[in-house]
C-alpha cells in the first residue's frame, strides 16, 4: 500500500513539473495539425501522424516534404535524421529506466519527447531521488502526449478553415527558432548551428530534397570537429 502511494506521489510530482510547459505545446501541436491539412493531406493522416510518429519537428517536415512531392525514401530518411536525437535522450535515461521490464520500457520509450527528457534527466541527476523514477517520468511525459493529440486534432480541424494568405506555414520555422535557443550552449554548438543552416541554405536546390540532410550532416561534423579542436588547444595551452 505504501509503495502504491509512493508511485502516485512521484506521478503527481511529474505532472506538476511539466505543467509550465503546456502553453508552448498547444500552439506547436496545432501548427503540426494545420501543416498536415494545408498540404492537402486527409485529416485522418494528420491525426494518424500524431499517434504513430508522435514527434512534432519530424511531423511538420514530413507534411512539408509530402506537399513538395519528395520521394518516400527521402521523407523517411529525413524524418529519422531529425529524430536521431532521441538516441541520445534514450541513452542518457538508460541508467535510470534501463532496469525496467519491457512492458514498461516500450510505452515509456514511445512517449519520450524533448520536454519529458529535459524534465526527467534534470530531476534524476540533480533532484532528490525517491524510488519510483519511472512514475515521475510517466507523470511528466503522459500529459504531453495527451495534449499533443488534442492540439493536433484541433489544428487539423482549424486548418481547413484557414485561408492561404495567412501563410500559416511560417509557423514552422517560428516554432523551431524557440527549440533552437536551449540547444545552443557553447562554441561548438554555435558552429554546428551556423554550418547546418548555411549548408542547408546553399544546398536548397539539391536533388531529391536532400538539402536538409546535407546541412544537418555538415553541421554535426563541424560541431564535433570544433569540439575536438578546442580540446586540443586547451591541452597545449
Amino acid at each position: 500500500m505504501t509503495q502504491r502511494s509512493d508511485s502516485g506521489q512521484a506521478f503527481a510530482d511529474g505532472v506538476r513539473t511539466v505543467a509550465p510547459m503546456i502553453p508552448g505545446v498547444i500552439p506547436f501541436g496545432m501548427t503540426a495539425g494545420i501543416a498536415a491539412v494545408e498540404v492537402g493531406l486527409d485529416p485522418s493522416v494528420g491525426i494518424g501522424m500524431s499517434l504513430i510518429i508522435f514527434a512534432g519537428a519530424s511531423q511538420l517536415v514530413v507534411a512539408q516534404l509530402i506537399g513538395d512531392g519528395a520521394l518516400p525514401m527521402i521523407i523517411i530518411l529525413t524524418a529519422l535524421l531529425i529524430n536521431l536525437r532521441m538516441v541520445m535522450y534514450s541513452a542518457s535515461l538508460a541508467p535510470h529506466l534501463g532496469h525496467l521490464p519491457m512492458r514498461w520500457k516500450a510505452p515509456l520509450a514511445y512517449i519520450l519527447t524533448d520536454q519529458a527528457y529535459a524534465i526527467s534527466i534534470t530531476r534524476f541527476t540533480y533532484g532528490r531521488s525517491h524510488g519510483a523514477k519511472h512514475w515521475f517520468y510517466l507523470g511528466a511525459a503522459l500529459p504531453l502526449w495527451i495534449l499533443w493529440q488534442i492540439s493536433t486534432a484541433l489544428g487539423v480541424w482549424l486548418g481547413t478553415a484557414v485561408p492561404p494568405a495567412w501563410q500559416v506555414g511560417f509557423a514552422l520555422p517560428l516554432v523551431f527558432l524557440v527549440l533552437l535557443v536551449p540547444v545552443i550552449r557553447d562554441r561548438p554548438s554555435v558552429i554546428a548551428a551556423l554550418t547546418g543552416g548555411g549548408v542547408a541554405l546553399a544546398a536548397h536546390g539539391a536533388p531529391y530534397h536532400l538539402g536538409l540532410s546535407i546541412g544537418a550532416f555538415a553541421g554535426v561534423a563541424s560541431g564535433v570537429a570544433a569540439e575536438l579542436m578546442l580540446q586540443r588547444r586547451e591541452r597545449t595551452a
Binding site: A57, V61, Q64, L81, I82, L84, R85, V87, M88, A91, G169, F170, L172, P173, F176, L177, L179, L180, V183, I184, P188, S189, V190, A192, A193, L194, T195, G196, G197, G198, V199, A200, L201, H204, G211, L212, S213, G215, A216, F217, A218, G219, V220, S222, G223, V224
Partner: peptide, 20 residues
C-alpha cells in the same frame, strides 16, 4: 549526437525562412 539538435534545427529553419 550532441550536435544533432542545433545542426538539424537550423537546417530546417534557415531554408524555410528564405525560400518558404
Amino acid at each position: 549526437l550532441r550536435y544533432v539538435p542545433p545542426a538539424v534545427i537550423t537546417a530546417i529553419v534557415v531554408p524555410a525562412i528564405v525560400y518558404g
